[in-house]
Design a protein around this nucleic acid. Structure first.
Lengths: 204, 204
DNA sequence: ACCTGAACACCGTTCAAGT
DNA sequence: ACCTGAACACCGTTCAAGT
């Protein structure tokens, strides 16, 4: 046997695959070693320990994020398009985003979208601090929405108490209470809330 | 020795204290047992296992959330006030909120604020589905913002690459790029983005 | 009813030893 | 340079046994 059995790259590759398929909790050093066909301790020569291994994974994910580009004719449409693409990007890699989030690298992950938004916000006429705040407001809204979305959709069941809570309402609020006790479409809510935010931002 | 050394209540009490002070990761059955002055296995008689123990903690946190009330003269002001109070509530119990979030009970946690918002949104003239969507948009914006805020503030350092990224910009965007490379005040951004969202929602 | 102790199957990590 | 094996200090959980 001459060539090394594993390398830092192969370790990262299969670690990445485990996280993508089964989540971070499934990434144990022993399982990783088993899938690599090596003794547990063999890993430690290539990556220092589990913490730095995860750090390298985060770097990879962030580094491989492609650019985000706008689309549409008006600045408002183009800002919305960036928001939708960022949301889509996060949705497509749930485990990896969780990884980045839990290691406090979310700000880095948002950079491509931030660039795209800066351009469109500038085109919409917002300069300097006002423009920066608009960019950040949209960014925070989108990423925050997706983070929350993940939690709510994970929710074991539509809690019965949630529906019951709105039953006793009377008068003009009855229709509102009724509507709140029904399930909702997260795509529509995202669309609606983001466009409301952008409208509010663009009018100063 | 006649009276039991521990009860389900005392187990939950000290488990809660550990999580509040040191986070969920610090809650091990063995540490819990040690702090209770009992053998590890003694815990299992009172709460089935670690999973159901955490489930009970989540129930407690959710059950102990007080009401959220509005304040201010105009509907817009009162909606903003609810948003600020919800954010404050979450900020005040970071570990517990993380607990609720990671166990998919965030929707339940938002109920008090949802009630308060429903009332104010109704008073602002939004009924039925439109009102429900406005309530949910504000709710998602606030909670999402705080979730993201936690991640970004956890971020080890203001990444140098973030600042460098904006250096080469030219022309009218220079001021915007400059503003984006500077740190920002999360309180101000929250205030600004929430009020923009509410403005956008109230104007249909 | 309430608690202990031994035992099992897992972890991450270190370190001397092998090739 | 690269990998193994033994060992250590942790986990959560089960179960027979004690009182």
């Amino acid at each position: 046997m001459d060539a090394p059995k594993i390398s830092r790259e192969t370790v990262l590759d299969t670690a990445m695959r485990i996280v993508e398929e089964h989540g971070l909790a499934a990434l144990s050093m022993r399982r990783l070693a088993a899938e690599l066909g090596v003794a547990v301790t063999g890993i430690y020569w290539h990556v220092g320990n589990r913490e730095v291994l995860i750090g390298r994974l985060v770097e990879r994910v962030v580094g491989r994020l492609g650019d985000i580009t706008a689309a549409g004719s008006t600045p408002e449409q183009r800002i919305l398009a960036v928001g939708h693409r960022l949301r889509r990007l996060i949705h497509d890699h749930p485990h990896m985003i969780a990884l980045v989030y839990e290691h406090g690298q979310t700000a880095l992950m948002m950079l491509p979208a931030e660039r795209a938004l800066a351009q469109e916000v500038g085109a919409a006429g917002l300069q300097g601090t006002a423009g920066a705040q608009a960019v950040r407001a949209v960014l925070h809204h989108v990423v925050g929405y997706v983070l929350l979305e993940r939690a709510v959709s994970q929710s074991p069941e539509q809690h019965p108490s949630a529906a019951e809570l709105w039953e006793g309402e009377a008068g003009a609020d009855a229709a509102l209470a009724q509507a709140l006790s029904a399930p909702f479409d997260p795509d529509r809510l995202f669309e609606l809330s983001l466009s409301a935010l952008v409208r509010g931002l663009l009018m100063g």
